[in-house]
Design a protein around this nucleic acid. Structure first.
Lengths: 209, 209
DNA sequence: CATTAATTAGAACAAATGTACTAAATTTTG
DNA sequence: CAAAATTTAGTACATTTGTTCTAATTAATG
């Protein structure tokens, strides 16, 4: 593996374990087995590493969206993609844990992040409309309510990792599965009778999916 | 004001503005106008300050709960208390922003925090049951669903500040009001037809409340 | 092979931080 | 008022961190 990739891998590990502020170019260099001087050659400072890791996450999420658009959007497929997306987010969890702090300190990231959020919000709105047309979502829910649901869903998808790390007892796999499931269940009271049927089928096979 | 209180006030300000890691006993001392040595006499280090501020928040929240139990729990009163609670949380917002990080670094805090969360969860469950008995909440919602709603509500009440700081455009007052309202609206799809009537009345007078 | 470019190690420096200690000043108490 | 306790300023020290620079080594290229 190239030095640059080794650095990114080790940095990701340390960021996730100890938070961005407790990690230095020296702590990463020591673990990788290279000098701090060499590390500074590849990345000027830890902010540059954070920025690169953020770009990697954004790219992984984009690929996930592209995947989604290829498939016919059944509830079952949506559940699968949700689980995958949650796994990706967990890999880069320090970005969600140090959310506000990173936005404050890494220049140029906030703007990019906000547009990523807007994009995801639009995707959710699209999905809600689709499922409403298919008769899976209730017809008596107003547009305003769907807008608010997607806001809450965005908030949830940024916050579940932090909540899980502090409150959840169990393995990482169990954590991811639990919060992906909870995410899915947030839409339950918005479903029509027909939607609930399909929904329960998905939930029954949740673990094996 | 006593030195100790001055320190706490200034520390709270700096924590909220810059995050816990960017604040030192010297930066606080300089702002208050006392020496670092003196500050170390009152609080051994920044962790001790964080811990004290956390206790202050927990105490303020407990008082809020006591207040709630005095009143007849109408939807209108609940909305008022919700707004107040959100204001309190915003005052101590660094604790929610640096959530995971503080739990990692300040010893003895995680346990206390977890029991606080459990307590709040039980309060929500109690409220849901009460409103269900009053016919404001839907009867066809299962116990499991109410358990999950309270989990999501706990998550939301820990995460809205971070979301708001990054994504919301507007004054702090508008931010608090917006997220308290969104919090309230999360329960909307769980309401009965009767509940919705009372609910909309509350929402109409939201700003003036 | 020779030269150029890329990579790496290592050292040096200033700034900031937690921590510990001393001595002076102030307040409280008897 | 005198003694004791509390509060305060100031200093010193070891660590850590970002940053910058130099020189050596390795890889790439013509």
């Amino acid at each position: 593996m190239k030095t640059k990739d080794k650095i990114l891998q080790e940095a990701l590990k340390q960021f996730n374990e100890r938070g961005t502020d407790a990690v230095s170019i020296r702590s990463i260099g020591d673990a990788v087995g290279i000098s701090a001087g060499n590390l500074a050659y590849h990345f000027k400072n830890t902010d540059a590493i954070i920025y690169q890791l953020y770009l990697n996450l954004a790219e992984a999420l984009n690929q996930q969206v592209a995947k989604t658009q290829d498939l016919e959007m059944t509830l079952h497929n949506l559940a699968k993609r949700t689980k995958e997306t949650f796994q990706i987010l967990f890999i880069y969890r320090f970005l969600l844990i140090d959310f506000v702090h990173i936005n404050r300190r890494v220049e140029g990231l906030q703007k990019h992040f906000l547009s990523l959020m807007d994009m995801r919000k639009m995707q959710f709105r699209f999905l809600f409309e689709l499922f409403q047309q298919k008769g899976l979502f209730r017809k008596d829910i107003t547009n305003e309510q769907y807008a608010e649901l997607s806001d809450i869903i965005i908030l949830y998808s940024n916050a579940w990792v932090s909540d899980g790390i502090v409150r959840f007892k169990g393995t990482n796999e169990a954590l991811i599965s639990h919060y992906a499931r909870l995410f899915f269940m947030m839409t339950l009271p918005y479903l029509s009778a027909e939607g609930k049927g399909a929904f329960e089928e998905v939930l029954e096979n949740w673990e094996s999916m």
